[in-house]
Every structure is written in C-alpha cells, then in structure tokens.
Design a protein around this nucleic acid. Structure first.
Lengths: 133, 133
DNA sequence: GTGGAGTTGACAATCGTTATCGTTAGCGCT
DNA sequence: AGCGCTAACGATAACGATTGTCAACTCCAC
C-alpha cells in the first residue's frame, strides 16, 4: 500500500509557529507573529505563517477573531465553544462562556427560518493595565 | 459673521445614496451600492459612496457589520441598540434584541477590569428563500 | 538511500478601502 | 442674481492585509 494522500508533515516551520503561539497568551496578527519569529531568528516566510494559521484555525487548534478595523487575529485557545473579552491595545484575552446566548441565537435563527446559523460574539475593551498606562 | 465651519451640505450624491439605502432592506457592501447607483444611471463616484456611508455610520443613520471574510456591509436601520440576523447569501436582515446579553457583557468586562468595552454580536445564516433555491 | 507528495517562500497579484488633490458646486450673504 | 468661501466630489494612486503562483526543497514511508 502506498502512502495515504493528505498526510500532514511535521516541519520546522510549523513547530516554530506553534511554539510561538504556545508562548503567547493574547491575540496576535499573522504579521505580528511573523515579525516575532524573525526577531528570534526563526527562518519562516510570511506566506507559511498565514498558511499554518489557517490550517490551525480550520483544525480548531487556534481561535481567530477580527478587530473592528478588519485585521485578523489568532490565538491558541482552550477547546470547546467560547467567546472572548479582548484588549484592543495589547491583545490580552479572557475566555468567556455565555450559556443562555447559545440557545438564544439558535432559537432566533430558527424562528425566522434561517438555517446553518453561526454567530460571532466579541467583547473588545481596554484592559486594566493598558488603561492606566 | 461668516458661515459656521463644519456645516454639512445637501448634495445630489448624498440624496441618491440615501434614496438607494431607503429602498434596500438588506445589508449591502459599498461596492454593491455603487454598482446599483451606476446601473440606475446615477452619477456617483465610488469614493463618495464610501465617504457617505462612513458619515452615515458615524451619525448612527446606518448600521455596519462585517462578514466573516472581512467585507464591510451597510444597511439603513432602526434607531437604538440592536443586533442582526443576516442572510449570508442575499443580505436580508432581521433586527433582534438581546435583553440579557447587554447587561451580561457589561458585567463581564467590568469583572475583568476592562474599560470602554464594546461588543459585536452577529448571527449569520441562510434565510428560508435562499435555502430552498 | 530514494521517490514523490506535502511544504516552503520570494514574489506578484488581488481586493476592499483610504489618501491625494485639483475641480465642482452648495449656500449664506449682499 | 452674483460673489465667495469652503464642503464635497471623484478619478486616480496608494495602501495594507491576505492569497495565488510555482520552482525549489524536505519530510518520511518504504
């Protein structure tokens, strides 16, 4: 039997992106992550950072959110469905759960005949540290 | 005394953008609106459409939301704080209110020391018409 | 070690949006 | 109606994040 097509490989670049994500606790943009990797001497292309983040996001390994200005941010996250309270300045994030809203959104969608409903809930603010600075 | 600086003027272009928005009941992108205006013979520049939408959004005359792919959408809306259930295909929107969540998000932000907290809640699905088509 | 399919990355292209800046035109005033 | 000031316009260029391209590379099963 030949190799199963579709296997994913463990490459140096993916390990480095994952390592950086593991060491970061706030949301970061692909460009920020790429810059950080370059700073610490890692040899990773910007394209690869984007691709890796997309892979991880699709696999549910990282969460992604979008700032009001449209920039995409990524963060290594706990599993399961949850939402975020994010600092608009430093990216620090707190995972929050909204038990009632999950049910509520489903019901609203169904009540209006919408199917395949998905929802996005993000709370963006300024964290205590950034506020006093 | 001279003219008060900062006055806004009534131009043909703004009237046309407003008229189109009034005749549209779903979320539309700036580019879609511009194309529609051109189709019906209106002479309006793309830049002006963007500027006008931004003005209206700042003034609270229209609501803006962002699709998962980052595209900005606009819609003439009822006043007051509310959220939307939007069709991902045709842009049709239903305004919904989430009584408990407004309070909940405020409390969560405060509990974690965040200030100036803002929240975005959007439900995107496929409406009944688009689903059967 | 070898083969070949998954990966990489420099570069170009895309796409929505914003800045530029000379021209146009709304409107308060006379 | 005419004048003048300045907001507003709009064609075009610039921008910035993201994605496509494609030849070179490198994991890894055998």
């Amino acid at each position: 039997m030949s190799v199963v097509p579709g296997a994913t490989r463990n490459t140096r670049q993916r390990a480095q992106v994952l390592a950086l994500l593991a060491a970061t606790d706030g949301f970061r943009s692909a460009q920020q992550l790429h810059a950080n990797l370059r700073d610490e001497g890692a040899q990773v292309g910007l394209t690869t950072v984007y691709r890796t983040l997309q892979l991880l996001a699709d696999a549910g390994e990282v969460d992604q959110m979008r700032l009001p200005d449209g920039e995409q941010l990524y963060r290594r996250c706990g599993r399961g469905h949850h939402h975020h309270l994010v600092c608009r300045l430093c990216g620090r994030a707190v995972e929050v759960e909204i038990p009632s809203v999950e049910r509520w959104t489903r019901n609203q969608a169904a009540a209006h005949g919408f199917v395949d409903a998905d929802h996005t809930i993000e709370i963006v603010g300024t964290c205590a540290d950034c506020a006093t600075r």
